[in-house]
């Protein structure tokens, strides 16, 4: 069976403008989504990919408007289902770059099932989860990442729900690539998205995103310029995990299956954990993901895990090719494949 469209080798160069559609961007002024869009549109020409081979698929929510603003192929689907729809598209068309743009409600509440299964199957998708810890489009209810006790329209006495930690969740769902970035640092976003795009298989990126209307400043305690040095732990593969203005803080494993923050001077640099995103066992990545319980404590960003595992589309194609052998299957043979008799 031939694919719908033959593959082309090299894409002609593009500019940021080529990737911007003619649609007016309609997020609230000041929304963090603008800077994420800018980061993606700026990055795309660098990736050397063709617009016609790029598809953005989204569900419902503020973030889900994203595909309308990208001048590529796109689908704005229904609430929570983007990973499922994108799974079909990526399985059918290995030649495409399929991105999923989703939010904390879309991916972790109504669509939680699809997200975990896309991750464990390792479908070749780049999944960007804009986490603003609130429902924006429905005007301000708590979300599955909102902190305990959060007072919103639907929780006037405070939320009783233990929030999800999206990075921990993705690691538990057998994801092969898990990263975190935030909307206040375009360079960090671009670098993280570039890594995610280069990963073959399901790449999951949590993006801390400010909803300035319903949850303003949710991440300011760690992402504001003044706080970053103290509060963001930038993960770098092969490097000891240190942070602080002079790298004076570091991360150790305490023998209880926990990561802990210590003064480097107290334990010595040799005892600080060296980050290894390629470990087959997700234990280290998981411990790092548990370092902070919310954006008020020092929080790791960057790539937690990047391991290689066959992706779903490639494996699907491998089975098809093996079954086809030298000769395509024949319909007449199929119809006669069960016992027949002639009248």
């Amino acid at each position: 069976m031939t694919e719908a469209v033959a593959t082309v080798a090299v894409a002609p160069p593009t500019t940021r403008k080529d990737w911007s559609s003619d649609q007016e961007v309609r997020w609230c002024p000041g929304c963090g989504d603008y800077s994420i869009l800018a980061a993606v549109q700026t990055l795309m020409p660098d990736l050397g990919v063709a617009r016609e081979r790029t598809v953005f698929v989204s569900g419902i929510g503020c973030a889900a408007r994203f595909p309308y603003y990208m001048d590529s192929y796109g689908m704005h689907s229904i609430h929570g289902r983007a990973p499922a729809i994108a799974t079909g598209l990526a399985m059918a068309r290995e030649d495409l770059d399929v991105w999923v743009v989703t939010g904390d409600g879309d991916a972790l509440s109504i669509g939680g099932n699809h997200l975990i299964h896309a991750l464990r199957r390792n479908v070749n998708l780049t999944i960007l989860l804009f986490n603003n810890q609130i429902y924006g489009l429905t005007k301000g209810q708590y979300s599955p990442t909102s902190e305990l006790g959060k007072v919103t329209k639907s929780t006037p006495f405070g939320s009783l729900d233990q929030p999800f930690n999206p990075v921990s969740l993705a690691l538990g769902a057998e994801a092969t690539f898990v990263a975190r970035t935030h909307d206040m640092d375009r360079q960090h976003m671009m670098e993280t998205f570039r890594r995610a795009h280069a990963h073959r298989g399901a790449a999951f990126v949590e993006v801390y995103q400010n909803c300035n209307v319903f949850n303003d400043g949710a991440f300011a305690g760690i992402t504001a310029k003044a706080n970053r040095e103290h509060m963001l732990i930038s993960l770098a593969h092969g490097e000891p995990i240190c942070f602080g203005p002079d790298g004076e803080k570091g991360v150790v494993l305490d023998g209880q299956g926990r990561a802990r923050i210590v003064d480097v001077a107290e334990v010595g640099i040799g005892n600080i954990v060296v980050h290894d995103e390629t470990r087959a066992e997700p234990g280290l990545a998981f411990m790092l993901s548990r370092l902070s319980t919310g954006p008020s404590e020092p929080t790791p960003i960057g790539v937690f895990r990047a391991v290689s595992r066959p992706d779903y589309g490639t494996e699907t194609t491998r089975q098809l090719v093996a079954a086809q052998g030298n000769r395509p299957a024949d319909l007449t043979d199929l119809l006669r494949s069960r016992p027949t008799w002639t009248v």
């Binding site: 069976m1 698929v57 689908m75 729809i85 994108a86 598209l89 079954a323 395509p328 299957a329």
Partner: peptide
């Protein structure tokens, strides 16, 4: 019948089944 180039996905639920088919 993969020999006919048929892709089948046993999805995580009914919704994903039709979603994937629509994506394809």
């Amino acid at each position: 019948h993969k020999g006919f180039g048929i892709r089948t996905l046993q999805a995580e639920d009914e919704i994903a089944g039709i979603g994937a088919a629509l994506g394809a």
